[in-house]
Amino acid sequence: MLRLRPLTLHRPTSLAEAIALKSEYGTDATYFAGGTDLLPNLKLLQVDAQVLIALADVAELRGIEAVDDDGGSTLHLGAATRLSTLAADPVVRSLVPSLADAAGRVASPQVRNMATLGGNLCLDTRCRYINQSQLFRDALGGCLKSHGKECHVVPGGQGCVAALSTDTAPLLIALGAELDLLGPDGPRSVPLGRFYSTDGLAHTDLRPGEIVVRVRVPVPAASTHVRNRKWAVRKSIDFPLVAVAVRLDLDPAAPVLTGGRIVVGVLGPRPRQLPLDRFAGASIDEALALQLGDLAFDRSRPLPNVPYDADYRRERLRVEVRRAVRDIAASLEG
């Protein structure tokens, strides 16, 4: 069986303690929450960590709370909230059902019982050339994300284009979520929409030692309609091969579009955001479904990074966007 290599584990009970440990050990150390992404990567020797800093005992990372603020309410989700909790939580289900739905589609029941929301947002990027055994990567001669000098996805490419394969990030970006971070230099907040970069080797805005503490999700207004769509070959276990969130903001007085956005995941390291301002005034109908599907198709170019045909993923993205719009249209009629 694949074994982990020997390592040292710390179990801090506060964020301050965790951050101090990380500062002490530097790049030898890695934060460790649910472990469902990190441990396979460690076992496959894709990443190395001599020191794990477990976040399981840090109470500050827990909790689900709806906070009323100016003009609406916001869900405050502790980063260590497990995905199964998120999927089942009555507050989440009533205020942001699309988030409960997205969390409930991640991987498998067991993984959802272990994995955390923060971990899902900080998932390492994935690629058919890196999420492999050591023997495979040796045989390949490595790639930009391992020990090689060549990108096998984009021949001649200079930057790593491994894909962010999270199920929740596109939706949370569409919802306008913000992250509260804490690091050695103190706290800061960053909109999730600006959290990711295009560098598959360092695809988040996290600075050394920083931890995602909380995810703040504005509860959408009644006139805002959000749908999350996932496509994978299997109905369980799989990472998404297409992940897209569609947010339509409607005029509260009439079912016409005032704005919104489509957020497409599993392209490269950063989800793509497609604002819908230019469709303002459109009715929510089949014509819009087709138009928005085409928009997503035209503006997204899935790569042969994750293990499925890229051209089909692009076709499929178009259909998933259409279906999200149709679903919203149907809900308006109902």
Partner: peptide, 24 residues
């Protein structure tokens, strides 16, 4: 195929060699 790449098994895990779940 680059040197050493041809013949390289692409899907040598139960994640990538997809066998059906109860839902499939």
């Amino acid at each position: 195929p680059g040197p050493g790449v041809a013949g390289l098994l692409a899907n040598s895990s139960l994640l990538d060699y997809r066998i059906p779940t109860a839902l499939d």
